[in-house]
Design a protein around this nucleic acid. Sequence first.
DNA 1: TCAACAGTTTAGAATGATTATAATATAAAT
DNA 2: ATTTATATTATAATCATTCTAAACTGTTGA
Lengths: 142, 142
Amino acid sequence: MLKNSEFVSKLRNSGLRPTKQRLKICEVLFNRDKTFHFTINDLAKNISENFNEKISLATIYNTVHAFKDKGYLKEITISSDKSYFDTNITKHHHFYDEDTNLLIDCNDNEIGKVDIKNNITGKKIRSVEVLVRVASDTQNQN
Amino acid sequence: MLKNSEFVSKLRNSGLRPTKQRLKICEVLFNRDKTFHFTINDLAKNISENFNEKISLATIYNTVHAFKDKGYLKEITISSDKSYFDTNITKHHHFYDEDTNLLIDCNDNEIGKVDIKNNITGKKIRSVEVLVRVASDTQNQN
DNA sequence: TCAACAGTTTAGAATGATTATAATATAAAT
DNA sequence: ATTTATATTATAATCATTCTAAACTGTTGA
Ligand SMILES: [Mn+2]
Ligand SMILES: [Mn+2]
Ligand SMILES: [Zn+2]
Ligand SMILES: [Zn+2]
């Protein structure tokens, strides 16, 4: 549970003014025990349902992208029409449950280190991400 | 190099009528030595530049999705605004070169088998995909 | 303290990739 | 050849995201 003043500092330190809207979004995103995986739509709905003050959709887009640019969020793309943001910014992998459309973080107990034997010559590895799609047995294949 | 009659059979066997447009698209996609990674836009441009007959964009979308549904193409999503199709339908991983926007297939010499130690209870693994983003050393971080 | 400035929010418009529509054309079946 | 089911096409519709520009707010320093 972070205090409001911590969000203020965090924002100031990244050159973002601590506005009412950004602080509210910080609260929703970062005042949690566990990782939060969300779509823009999830976030907009969460805010409009749980608070009186409404934040315009443009601001939600702007803020999420600003937070991503500053490294406070990661983006995880599941398919061409499903993109999630992730409050867990450490290197980690995901299960994606196709039944529930939920992303689940993996730790090293679940997926071992990916063994990259040969990288492309002259290139640097920027990220390594594993996505394991799962679904219940009785589900349609493909 | 596949013959036209092979495409005709392939389409018929999947319940797709072998139309002029579908055969042309088969030719462009599958008459190659190496894997082809493409966006819808790449394919549309390829067809309009290399052939006289024009195929409507709607048909290109329809056909690519039909081929994907039949399992002749895989879709690889790189980011919320970049989705590729892949003529290599075997299980494999990718490097994504952020400098050139090119996908590169990995084989087992490059990325070892991903070690999934614990799957989600009651769920079946549908796919395991690794994406390694690379860029030249001198490139901006993040 | 407060004016001045830069940065932010907002409603609404614009964009653009994808999908839907429905008329026409083509392939397959009879 | 006729009929029927499928496919193609131009065009319109959709809808998530981005843009615009006016109003608003946080910050700074005189
Ligand atoms: Mn698609
Ligand atoms: Mn985005
Ligand atoms: Zn995560
Ligand atoms: Zn591939």
